[in-house]
Each structure stands twice: as C-alpha cells, then as structure tokens.
Design a protein around this nucleic acid. Structure first.
Length: 433
DNA sequence: TCTGGGGTCCTAGGACCC
DNA sequence: TCTGGGGTCCTAGGACCC
C-alpha cells in the first residue's frame, strides 16, 4: 500500500512555500521600472500565447493562455507592455531568489522556476514574522516580490500561498494556515481546481460524486476515491486533513527524459529546413545530457503539422532509434535524428513543430563501463568536453555543427524579447544620466 | 497569417515466465 | 468435458504540474 508514505505518528510538520508573484512579468520589471503599475504580459515561445500577466493585466481581463493574435488589438488599446519570454533572464533571477531562500531554511526543495518549498518544522519563532522577513530580503536583494504560505502539508501550504496572494484575509504576503480561525469554512469556499493536483477534468468527475468543494473532498472517504481515481487523489484527501503524505524532496531525482522541441517561426515544408531544426534539437539534447551527466539509450524524433490548420489533414509521426551503447555524443545523436526524420518526412506538408526526445537515460559513468568503450569513446568525450568549454566561455552556439545552420527558417519569433541583462556581458543594462 | 515547452506519475493491459 | 495462477516487466495513454 503506497499510503505507507504518510506517518500520522510523526510530530507535526511545518511546510512553507515561497512563490514569486507573476514571476516573468516581475523579472522584466526589475530592469524596466517604468512598467511598474502598468499591465505587462509575457508570451510563450514563438510569441504564441500569454503565459504570465501582471496584476494589472489580470485586472483588465487578459486570460492565461490567450493566443496573442486574439488579444493583440486589445493589448494595444490598453497600453499593455508585451514581451517575448526571456528564459536566460528568468532562470538567472530564479537562481538568485533560491539562493537567498536557502539562507533562511536548512532544507529547501526548488519546485519550479518560481516556487520553492522549505521546511520550518521545529522553528521556535513567530513563523509569519520570520517569513515576512524573507519576503523583504528577497525583494530588496533581487527586486522580485514573493508570497509565502505555511501549513502542516504541502497541499495546504500551496493553498495558504494562494490565499496570501489573493489578500482575502489580510493584506500580507504571508499566510500561516495554523492562524486561521475556521479552516473548514475556508475549505468550503475553495473551488476544487484551486487545489494543487486537481484540474478541470477531475473537478467534473468529482462533481458526479457530489464532491463540489475542498471541504467535501476533505470529508470524503479516501479509499473510495482511490478506487475512482488513483492513489494521487487519496493522498490529496489526507493532505487536506493535515496528514503529510508528500515529503520535501531536497535532492532532485535524476532526469528520466530530455526533450527539446519548438514550434517554428513559420510553417516549414522543405526537408533541409526541418533537418537543420532537428539537428539543432539533437545538439541541445546532447548538451543537456552532458550537463546532467547522463547518456541516452535511445532517441525519438517527431514532427507534426498544425492541428488548427483546416487546409491539410493533421499529420504527426515519430521515429525511434536505440543505441547499441548509451551516448551523449552530439554527432551521434544528430545522425540518429536525421535518419529518423528521413523516415517520417512527407514532402508537400506544412510542418509547424518538431522535436527530439531522449526517453531512456542512464548515468554516464555507468555507460562508460562498457567493455566496448575504447579509444573511439575517449575521443568523443574529449571532443564534447572541448565543445562545451568553448561554448561556455564564448557563449551558447559559439561553435556548432554546419548542419544546424543550413537553415534558420525554423527559428522562433521573438519579436519583443528583452536583453539578457544578467547573463550576457554585451547586454548589460545601460544607464544614462 | 498567428494557438508553448518541458517535465512527472499512475494505471491498465499485454507479454512473458515459471 | 474440464485448459492455472501469480509475479514481473514494459508500454501507451491519460492525468497532473509549472
């Protein structure tokens, strides 16, 4: 029984989660203070749809996930600042925030680019005051506003964080679940899909069981829900009751797969254009592999046309190669991707997206133990090390394979991208006096 | 014209083995 | 006439997260 992971007899735990407010929009504002108090949205890769909004943008009704072309006019009318996503900037700002949090709590789990769980169990101080101090320091040192939720389980901490942001109880970026007078009343007013782990499709299935809000879910029979759904739902019920089933994961488990894919800036029909794209994806995947000290046992390459295109039938296909020996050699992965593409490419179609997936990974030291790894593999390792060192020193893609640059037509649209202020010396912020 | 990218976990069902 | 049962492994698909 997998619910053995919760231990009701352990002393009460205290989880906190810090969440950066409107993270991508906030990062942009740090370097563009004139955007404070103005509506700001950040677009997905390829400037496709809205993936982050400032409070002002939310207030005028711009929805998460809205396709940009649908809101373009509206955004112009309302003076919305529109930005392409700038992951170099967000990743670096995230690292800074996490570093500060690590100074305040001995055990932290970086959960996503803008969220971090940490353990406050046993801390003998006022938890709200302590977390307010954390918020103040993060804001002062990075410019990023954060909110913190505190509770006996991760699920409740996520909810507390949400409530802190909503300002429903007090205008304060910190909310400690333990300080609420009537937590059941709060749960009764909480929609199911506001809970961590419950999305729309489960919400409607729960409704069929007469479970319509978070309190009803808390009071439902966990065993019965497990039969209807899975152990995941059973855990949520326990967590709502204050029994911690989901532990802090301080050490991230090794990656199980690596995916590099993109929608293209324009629809592609030519084989060479696609080949340049998948070659680049294979190279990037190989780099990620080496960065994580992993090696791939297989590679899948896939292409697809647009599901929104009414003029041609939707086509999606993939091809997979198994390697005799696990590898993270760029050239080898490229060859596999190119051979796979040749198998699934159909002339005459307009492709909108492609990608390379490494679905089975091994630690690279295991891979190196192979009896067959001899001189050839040493040369490959030396070459890759050299490539990585050059690109590290002189910037991404300073040195690349020729096939990658045969065509640039697949490159994403990034019409509104801000500079990489913190990660590229040539793009430092300039201040004129 | 224009709709993201990168992950994880769980389950069911089939293949296979003894 | 009557055709087992339990275990493991793998995969595809569906759900979730940010």
């Amino acid at each position: 029984m997998s619910s053995a992971r919760y231990r009701p007899d352990t002393p009460d735990k205290v989880f906190a989660i810090a969440d950066c407010n409107n993270f991508y929009a906030s990062c942009e504002r740090v370097f563009r203070p004139e955007l404070n108090d103005k509506p700001v949205v950040v677009l997905s890769n390829n400037d496709g749809c809205v993936i982050a909004r400032s409070n002002e943008a939310k207030a005028i009704g711009i929805k998460m996930g809205a396709p940009y072309f649908q809101i373009e006019r509206f955004a112009k009318q309302h003076g919305v600042a529109v930005l392409s996503s700038n992951y170099a900037l967000y990743g670096d700002m995230s690292r800074r925030v996490m570093q500060i949090l690590a100074g305040f709590a001995p055990r932290i789990e970086v959960y996503s680019i803008d969220e971090c769980f940490f353990d406050l169990t046993g801390l003998k101080t006022d938890l709200t005051d302590y977390c307010l101090k954390i918020c103040a320091v993060v804001k002062q040192w990075t410019g990023i506003p954060i909110s913190i939720g505190i509770a006996p389980t991760k699920t409740l901490a996520k909810l507390a964080n949400r409530l802190a942001k909503s300002g429903r109880f007090r205008q304060c970026p910190v909310l400690d679940w333990h300080t609420l007078d009537d937590t059941d009343a709060v749960l009764a007013e909480t929609a199911l899909n506001d809970l961590w782990g419950i999305a729309a499709s489960w919400q409607s299935q729960l409704a069929l069981l007469q479970i319509a809000d978070a309190l009803a879910l808390k009071q439902a029979d966990p065993k019965r829900l497990r039969q209807h759904f899975s152990v995941v739902m059973e855990r949520i019920v326990h967590e709502l009751r204050g029994l911690s089933c989901i532990d802090l994961e301080e050490i991230p488990s090794p990656r199980k797969q690596i995916l590099t894919s993109r929608s293209f800036g324009e629809k592609l029909t030519g084989y060479d254009d696609l080949c340049a794209a998948v070659t680049y994806f294979a190279t990037r995947s190989a780099e990620k592999c080496r960065q994580h000290r992993l090696a791939a046992q297989a590679l899948t390459v896939f292409v697809e046309t647009s599901p929104f295109d009414t003029r041609q039938p939707f086509y999606a296909n993939s091809a997979t190669f198994e390697f005799q020996l696990p590898t993270h050699d760029s050239a080898q992965l490229q060859r596999a991707a190119q051979r796979g593409l040749a198998r699934i490419y159909h002339p005459g179609l307009s492709y909108r997206r492609a990608g390379v997936l490494l679905p089975e990974l091994l630690p690279d030291h295991v891979a190196q133990l192979s009896l067959l790894s001899g001189e050839r593999s040493n040369r490959s390792a030396d070459l890759m090390q050299t490539l990585d060192a050059i690109n590290q020193r002189y910037g991404k893609s300073s040195i690349r394979y020729a096939r990658e640059i045969l065509s640039q037509r697949w490159r994403m649209r990034q019409q509104f991208k801000s500079p990489s202020y913190t990660t590229n010396i040539r793009e430092l912020l300039t201040i004129r006096i």
